[in-house]
C-alpha cells in the first residue's frame, strides 16, 4: 500500500538564464512501513525533495500525494494541521526549543494540537530512546546524540504516519550516528511508521530497506 507518491515533481528557482532546476521530474513512491534512504551529493536536490514531501514547499509542477491526498490542493491552514498530525520531522540541527526541558520538547507538538499527551506512550518512547533521567533537563546541556534522540522522540510522540528525516546524523560522529540510526530504525518498526531519510553517508544508508540515489534533481537508480 502506497503512503506517499510523487508524480513528475519539478522545482525551478529563478527563470530564463538564471533558472536553477533543483528538481527535474521526480517520480517516487513509498510503501507503508518502509524505511527509505535518499542519498546524493550536496546540491543534488535531496533536501528540496524532502521539503516537497513534507509540504514545506510547493512544487513548480507535478503533484505530491500523501495517503491519497494531494498536498498542493490543500489550504494553508489545512496543510498546517496536516503536517502537525501526519508528519514528524527530524532535522540535522535538532531544532529543539531551548527554553523547554526534554519532556516539554517531546510533547510540544501534541500540546500544540490540543491533545493531552498519552503519558504511558510518551514514557515508552523515552525509555526506548534511552532518555530516562533527562526529562527535566534543558536541551542545551545534552550531547548531540542525546539532543537528536529528543528530536526523534518528539517526532514519534504525535504518532505520525510518516517521519521525514533530513540528514538526521549529519552533526553526529560516526559512532553516535550508528547508535541513533539503530534506535530510529527500531522505533519506527515498532510503531509501524514510515521513514524517509536523507543522507550522504552510504554506511548509514545500509540500514534502509531501499536506497534511491538522486543526482541533478533526478532519481538515477533505485
Amino acid at each position: 500500500m502506497k503512503i506517499l507518491e510523487t508524480k513528475n515533481v519539478k522545482k525551478y528557482y529563478g527563470n530564463g538564464d538564471n533558472c536553477v532546476k533543483a528538481l527535474d521530474g521526480v517520480d517516487l513512491s513509498v510503501d507503508k512501513g518502509e524505511l527509505l534512504a535518499i542519498v546524493g551529493t550536496s546540491g543534488s536536490g535531496k533536501s528540496t525533495l524532502l521539503h516537497m514531501l513534507g509540504g514545506l514547499d510547493i512544487p513548480t509542477e507535478g503533484s505530491v500525494m500523501i495517503n491519497g491526498k494531494e498536498l498542493s490542493k490543500m489550504k494553508e491552514e489545512q496543510l498546517t494541521i496536516f503536517r502537525r498530525r501526519q508528519i514528524g520531522f527530524v532535522f540535522q540541527n535538532y531544532n529543539l526549543v531551548p527554553m523547554l526541558n526534554v519532556y516539554e520538547n517531546i510533547v510540544l507538538p501534541l500540546e500544540l494540537d490540543g491533545n493531552k499527551p498519552d503519558r504511558k506512550y510518551v514514557h515508552g518512547i523515552i525509555d526506548l530512546l534511552h532518555l530516562k533521567g533527562t526529562e527535566t533537563r534543558f536541551t542545551n546541556g545534552l550531547s548531540g546524540g542525546q539532543q537528536q534522540r529528543v528530536a526523534i522522540a518528539r517526532a514519534l510522540a504525535s504518532k505520525p504516519a510518516i517521519i521525514l528525516a533530513d540528514e538526521p546524523t549529519g552533526n553526529l560522529d560516526s559512532k553516535t550516528s550508528q547508535e541513533v540510526l539503530g534506535l530510529l530504525k527500531m522505533s519506527i518498526k515498532k510503531f509501524g511508521q514510515t521513514l524517509v531519510m536523507i543522507t550522504h553517508n552510504n554506511e548509514i544508508a545500509q540500514l534502509a530497506d531501499r536506497i534511491i540515489r538522486i543526482e541533478d534533481g533526478r532519481i538515477c537508480e533505485g
Partner: peptide, 28 residues
C-alpha cells in the same frame, strides 16, 4: 475530514490512524 481544529477532526484523525495500522498489520 481530519484537517480542522475541531474535536471531531481530532477523533477522525485517530480513526484514520487506526484504520492505517489495521491495514498495515493485515498486510504484514
Amino acid at each position: 475530514n481530519f484537517l480542522e481544529e475541531t474535536l471531531m477532526a481530532r477523533i477522525n484523525q485517530k480513526i484514520v490512524r487506526i484504520a492505517e495500522i489495521l491495514a498495515a498489520e493485515r498486510k504484514k
